[in-house]
Simulated assay, not measured.
Amino acid sequence: MNTPSSETSTATTVRIIASPQSWVEGEAVRQLEAVARLPGMRLAVGLPDLHPGKGAPVGAAFESEGFLYPYLVGSDIGCGMGLWDVDLLARKAKAERWAAKLDLEGPWEGDTDAVLAEQGASSTGFESALGTVGGGNHFAEVQRVEEVHDARVFEALGLREERLLLLVHSGSRGLGESILRRHVDRHAAGGLAAESEEARAYLARHDGAVLWAKANRALVAQRALEGIGATGRRVLDVCHNSVTARHEGGRVGWLHRKGAAPWDEGPVVIPGSRGALSYLVLPVGTGEQSAYSLAHGAGRKWTRTAARERLKERFTAESLTRTSFKSHVVCEDRDLLFEEAPPAYKAIDRVVTDLVEAGLVRVVATLAPVLTYKTRGRTAE
């Protein structure tokens, strides 16, 4: 089996899992190699959705020993994907009606303490944002099943081909930003000695933000389901911005995921752009070559500025509220509508094919957008 990767033999292993058919920006590779030179770094892996980030690439996983690096996790600690099975038949979808009325903005008026407690999380002072999607590439998307590729796994998850699904991509909102800012104000992009008191304090705040983010996705889903008049059951929830300890062979390694879904937590949804399919996949193989991580999405092809400049010449804002799947997009921030347009992203089918060819996943089903919710506001956070 062909495993598309490139590797350099240094003190730190640097590996990029991408086929020759996949385009990976040179700046992303440079950032990956720069991170590999940090003290204690042992493994740096770029996944097929690798693209440049703020100082460190997105779509990557890093394992270090003796040090951990909060800036590799970034500001949206706990960001991830949750998938819900919706108790509503796809043929009964009312996408146009839902697009006109669905509103997930503003503070939720219910008992946030109870929502947090259900996920084992605690109040943090950021609860006015709990249950909101946020800006950037975050979304809540009603989906239908396009095709089932592995009926056994699909059915084992309790899914039915004729029903709708809801995919939520969101994180810890301002909480994660505050945690990173606290670190950066003292250490800039520097790391922390793993056994230090500062590292333990950061990890405690980090772990709290991961739980808070999971609660946020659950509440976003609850609000979205109520908005379309349905109920749902959570099928999976995975985090793709985190740092976790890995105990192996008597040593402790620190696995940083920056826009990298976990390989070792069961099925994962890898979304495309709002005008492309999403892939429900099952991890296979050993996961060792990819630092036990998977691509978390299509990955940006263009920067936000480039996307605005290029696409405003080709499309009207109104045209971007509908997709080739005839799905609807709710995004009342005009700049964000162009920044997040499908052409700004890599082809998701190529990203997933690279993972399949690398022996990392098996496709369970493809999911098509019906309604993508971004924001009702004029300015993305």
Rank of each mutant, 00 (worst) to 15 (best):
G135T: 06
G106K: 06
L89G: 04
L83H: 02
F126G: 03
S122Y: 10
A56D: 04
G55P: 02
H138L: 12
V73W: 09
H138M: 05
D113H: 13
A100S: 05
K54A: 15
G53K: 14
L88H: 11
L68I: 14
Q119P: 00
G59L: 03
D103P: 03
E63F: 04
A100T: 04
A95Q: 05
S64N: 10
E118H: 00
K92R: 07
V73A: 10
V58A: 04
G53Q: 14
E141Q: 14
G134A: 10
I77Y: 02
A56E: 13
H138T: 12
A100P: 03
F139V: 04
G136Y: 03
D76P: 10
E127C: 11
Q119Y: 13
W98A: 08
E141R: 05
A61D: 08
S75N: 08
L83P: 01
V115S: 00
N137P: 11
D113C: 12
M81V: 15
K94Q: 12
K54C: 00
F67C: 12
G120E: 02
L72K: 12
V133T: 08
M81R: 07
G131V: 04
A117C: 08
A129C: 10
L89W: 01
D111R: 02
P107L: 06
A90E: 02
A129S: 15
D113W: 05
D85F: 09
V73C: 07
G66V: 05
G59I: 01
L104G: 00
G80V: 07
Y69M: 13
F67P: 00
A99K: 00
S128D: 15
